[in-house]
Each structure stands twice: as structure tokens, then as C-alpha cells.
Design a protein around this nucleic acid. Sequence first.
DNA 1: TATGTAAATGATAAATTATTTCACTTAGAA
DNA 2: TTCTAAGTGAAATAATTTATCATTTACATA
Lengths: 146, 146
Amino acid sequence: MRLTEKEVVTILRQHGYKLTWQRRVVIRTVVSTQDHHTPTAIYEKVHQDYPNIGLVTIYRTLEILARLNLICELHAGGSCHSYTIAAPGHHHHLICSNCGRVVDFTGCELEELQQSLSKETGFRIDGHLLEFIGLCQTCQKETITK
Amino acid sequence: MRLTEKEVVTILRQHGYKLTWQRRVVIRTVVSTQDHHTPTAIYEKVHQDYPNIGLVTIYRTLEILARLNLICELHAGGSCHSYTIAAPGHHHHLICSNCGRVVDFTGCELEELQQSLSKETGFRIDGHLLEFIGLCQTCQKETITK
DNA sequence: TATGTAAATGATAAATTATTTCACTTAGAA
DNA sequence: TTCTAAGTGAAATAATTTATCATTTACATA
Ligand SMILES: [Mn+2]
Ligand SMILES: [Mn+2]
Ligand SMILES: [Zn+2]
Ligand SMILES: [Zn+2]
């Protein structure tokens, strides 16, 4: 079950953030759709009803909501522009969040999950995105010494 | 095993693309590191040795290499700005590539894989990114009628 | 309910990032 | 060597994101 407007508002205030009408409107917009949207898209939607709202406020609000895990950042289908050399065949990546090192791996074994998801939702699933994120050995040591 | 410069070059030419020195330099740069890089980062790296190369060429070359699956686009740790409302607890997303509809799901069961990966690589793994991409029922029908 | 204050907003500017255009250059086939 | 389609880079433009700061506002407190 997804978070409701009320739940989001409550958590936001529990963390000491003020509830401005601008924030409420952004929250309402995000909650009231099953789609995902970019800051610009949300801005344009909101801007129709509230022409005075600023794009910066959208950015700031989304940043807060994301930090509090009240909204999720999506990747697949978007256009991230960070590249690494490929390996042949189906594989995925383990990435060091500190130095950017990338390790390839195979054997994701997601076919079963994909099948059941497809059955439950009626989606025709074309692919998946899987990445692990962490700290490589080198960066772990560095973190300790610091 | 990752692709080598030679392999990338061969496949590039097999697809009818000319091998310019600019393209070779970009390929060499991407191949010669285990990290991932943005177009700007690659540009700055290449630009040191070849001040005449244009940033546009970097973009164009990366786009081609990505389309041919010779390089991989990474997401975790990057900053994609497309959001959807969250659900409580650990969950992931199934996304329609046509209309953007998002369906949440749980039960990724990646702990085992994460364990073995951590053991093999020495990484301390902090999290994972998992998304399925496909077509929702509605968009499947639309595709058929068209 | 009125007041005070820190937090938040939005106008503006600036910085990044990405795309388009087009005259010139070049890889590679013939 | 010649020819030509493909590719390049300079420049302009567009799009996205961040920074600054005077003004406004939420809300705790009196
Ligand atoms: Mn991404
Ligand atoms: Mn998971
Ligand atoms: Zn590292
Ligand atoms: Zn759809």
C-alpha cells in the first residue's frame, strides 16, 4: 500500500518541517497518480492550478521527500549518463559508492520473480535493472583510517 | 570478462560506423578503467591529451556505444530525477516504459546473492537497486491496435 | 488571539548539462 | 588517388539544476 497524503504530511511534520501549502500541493500531486514524474513535470502540473509556485520549491520539496523516503527515485527508462565498459551477455553491476569502481556479475536469477510479477500484474516484462551498491575493499580501509 | 578495445572497435565497424581517432580515444578511455564516468568526466580526461576533441563527439560516441551494448549505463549512486510516491518498507518497482505507470512489489529475495557477492568481491554491500520494466496491460492493447 | 522568529518561498542569476545546426574534414570504399 | 557519405567541432540554443537573497509565512509561545 502506498503512502497517503495524510501519512506523508504527518511524517514531514514529525521531522520538523513546516507544512506550507506549496508542499502540500506537491505531495498531493505525487500521491494522486500511479505514474512517476520529473521535477519539471510536477511543476507544470502544479503550475496550472497554482501559477505562483516556483520551480525551485518543487526541487526543494522533492529533495526532502526523497531523503525521508516518502517518495522513491526511479531509474529504468530514465536517462542516466554514467557509463562503464560492457561485458558480453547478461550481467549486472556492483558499484562502489565512494570510488566508482564497478564489478560485473552474472546469475541474477530473476526469471521466477519476473514470471510471477507478470502473472499478477498483467505486465509484459521486457527487462530488469539490478545493481548492488556498497564500498570496495580499498574504500572500506580508507574509511576506517579516517 | 569485459570487452577489450579491439573487440569494441571490431563490433563498431561491423555495424558500419567509421573508426575515427576520436572514437578510438573515447573507447580506450572507457576500456582502461574499472570506474564509471559521465560524458563530462570522459571529456575532461580525453581533453588533456587531445585538446581538439569536442564534447559533442563524446556524447555522440557514447550514445552509439550504448546502443550497441558496448558500454553499460549505470544508475545507482547517480541522480535520476524521476519520482513516485513511496510505500512502507523494502520494496521495488515495476514500470511501464510507455505510460510510466508504477507498480510496487516486495519479495526481491536478493540477500543470498548479496552475501555471495560480498564474499567473492570483498565489498561491503549497503543496498541494491532493482526495477522491472515492461508494458502494462493498457499499453499492450494500444500497441496491438496501432 | 497576537507576536516573534526561524524556516521557507520565489525572483533572479548563474552554473551545468544536453541538443541542434551547419560548414568543414576525414575514413574508407572504389 | 579520388570520391563521398559519414563524422567532427564551433557556436548557438535549450534544458536542467543550483545558488543567492530580500520577502513572506508557519507555527511555537506568550
Ligand atoms: Mn538512473
Ligand atoms: Mn529489494
Ligand atoms: Zn571504492
Ligand atoms: Zn503503460
